[in-house]
């Protein structure tokens, strides 16, 4: 039984084995569904020269923004950045290499990487600076560029509930990039709000089957809101 028990009980154990120079794939969109405690653990370990794949780079003092404070990220693949002053400064000073990547292409890089597909053609970015230097092929009269997929040394993921086998469900739009990230790590670590008994999650409702998951940890989350918009009246 223990062979399938993915639970770990400290964040130190959850991120065991992460080293400088590694590639880390992170779930989350903005501050929604980010693995906030796993990121904090990476900060605590002070590993450097990380390559990060994430849609955004957090905000000042929270999320991946934490890893900017000690310049732990040397390169990031993201679709939208610069919501944080520190990021802006590091980008303008060339202290961080930013590879701007269309959002759908970023998601597909993770999905394909996890599915054993090394590259894929997409029309996204053809004829733009994103397509420059990339292989182009025509299919049915349309042009497509070749994009390479990604597999990370670590994938860090935020789920809602999981069982000890590593089956995960996500909650609402906190799903976002998390299911693809979960497939694309050589070591995939998922932090969740609640670990439940096997059988409590309906098998046909599982978003991420446990086969993709190496470690599960239950945590508590701040869940900061980036843009608080409310309905008046």
């Amino acid at each position: 039984m223990a062979g399938f028990d993915k639970r770990v009980y400290s964040y130190e154990d959850a991120m065991d084995g992460i080293e400088s120079g590694m590639t880390v794939i992170a779930g989350g969109f903005g501050l929604c569904g980010i693995p906030e405690n796993l990121i904090a653990e990476i900060k605590r370990r002070r590993v450097k020269d990380l390559t990060v794949y994430s849609n955004n780079c957090g905000v000042d003092g929270f999320g991946l923004g934490l890893l900017l404070e000690d310049r732990q990220i040397s390169r990031i693949f993201a679709s939208y950045v610069g919501e944080n002053a520190l990021f802006e400064r590091q980008m303008l000073n060339d202290e961080i290499e930013v590879v701007l990547t269309p959002q759908g292409t970023l998601a597909e890089k993770m999905r394909a990487g996890g599915a054993g597909i090394p590259a894929f053609y997409t029309a996204t970015g053809y004829g733009t600076p994103i397509g420059e230097g990339k292989e182009v092929r025509e299919f049915n009269g349309r042009h497509y560029i070749l994009e390479e997929s990604v597999v990370g040394d670590f994938a860090i993921v935020k789920g809602w509930k999981a069982d000890r086998y590593g089956n995960v469900v996500y909650r609402d739009t906190a799903q976002n990039f998390n299911p693809m990230a979960a497939t694309a790590g050589r070591i995939t670590v998922v932090e969740v709000e609640e670990i439940v008994e096997p059988g409590e999650l309906k098998p046909d409702q599982i978003h991420t089957p446990g086969i993709y998951v190496d470690r599960i940890i239950q945590g508590t989350f701040e869940k900061r809101i980036e843009k608080r918009t409310v309905h008046q009246g």
Partner: peptide, 10 residues
């Protein structure tokens, strides 16, 4: 300052 294309290209 270039912040990125988000999903616009897709």
């Amino acid at each position: 300052l270039i912040k990125g294309m988000g999903g616009a290209m897709d």
